[in-house]
Every structure is written in structure tokens, then in C-alpha cells.
């Protein structure tokens, strides 16, 4: 690795990159989400027709992506808080990151059926 192309690299930098990317993604989603929710002030039909988009298989995959982003940002955010406020935080930052990744994997596995199940049923029948 040539010197100077990465800021330190390794776990600390990549978790920061992922935290930043997921934060921006969630913010953009939230902007659209408040607009779609505002349709309840237009008419029940306008709201229901738009929310129907959320129930399509392609968007279900995007929702799973949103869950992935929110879960990582939330768990890693707690890790950032621990690094800043817990006296042993910096010493265990790496272990805490792998705890975050482990928890994230477990929660993502648990979310797969509830979030993607209806999409799988729609695409493959039954």
C-alpha cells in the first residue's frame, strides 16, 4: 500500500467511511419518506397508491438495504459514543467493531424473512 493514500486505514477508517455513507443514505431516505407520508393530507387513495410502491419486490430489497444501513449506523453510533465516553473505549474499539458486525449479521438474518418474505412469495408464487 503506497503511503499517504489512506488515512490510517484498517478498522477505524473503514467503519468511519461506512458510518458516513449510511448516515447520508438514511437522511436522503427520510426526506422522501416525509414527503410520501405527507400524502395522508391529500387523500387516502393518493397515500395508498404511493405506499403500494413500498410493497413491490424490488423496493422490498431496497428496504432490506435501508434496514442494513440503519442497523449498522445505529450499532456503530453506539460504538462511537463508547469510544468517546468510556475510559477503556479506545483500547477496545476494534473488539467493539467486531461485536457491532456480529450483532449486525444476526439482526440482518432475523430481518430477512419479515422484510423479504412477501417479495419472495410474490416472485416465486405460493
Amino acid at each position: 500500500m503506497p503511503a499517504g493514500t489512506l488515512y490510517r486505514g484498517r478498522e477505524g477508517m473503514w467503519s468511519w467511511v461506512a458510518h458516513r455513507v449510511t448516515g447520508v443514505l438514511i437522511f436522503f431516505f427520510l426526506f422522501v419518506h416525509v414527503l410520501d407520508t405527507a400524502l395522508v393530507r391529500v387523500s387516502p387513495e393518493a397515500y395508498d397508491d404511493t405506499i403500494a410502491v413500498y410493497k413491490t419486490p424490488v423496493v422490498a430489497v431496497m428496504e432490506y438495504g435501508l434496514v442494513a444501513a440503519v442497523l449498522f449506523h445505529a450499532l456503530n453510533g453506539l460504538r462511537v459514543v463508547a469510544v468517546d465516553f468510556w475510559s477503556q473505549g479506545t483500547r477496545y474499539q476494534k473488539q467493539m467493531l467486531w461485536t457491532v458486525v456480529g450483532l449486525w449479521l444476526v439482526l440482518m438474518a432475523g430481518a430477512a424473512y419479515p422484510v423479504l418474505g412477501h417479495a419472495v412469495r410474490e416472485v416465486f408464487g405460493s
Binding site: 395522508v40 405506499i51 428496504e63 434496514v67 440503519v70 442497523l71 445505529a74 422484510v115 418474505g117 412477501h118
Partner: peptide, 29 residues
Amino acid sequence: SGIVLVVLVLGHLLIQLVLDGGVSKVSFA
């Protein structure tokens, strides 16, 4: 705000995407 949002947003996602049939039940009603 991050600490509070863990409860609010993860709770919201649980209600909207997991409980009661997931996103399929969301409607005006």
C-alpha cells in the same frame, strides 16, 4: 440524539416492517 434515535428508529422499523405482517399492512387506515 443518536442514543435516543436507536430506540425511536429501530422501534419504528420493527413496527413498520416486522410486526403485524410487515410493510403489507401499511395503509391510510
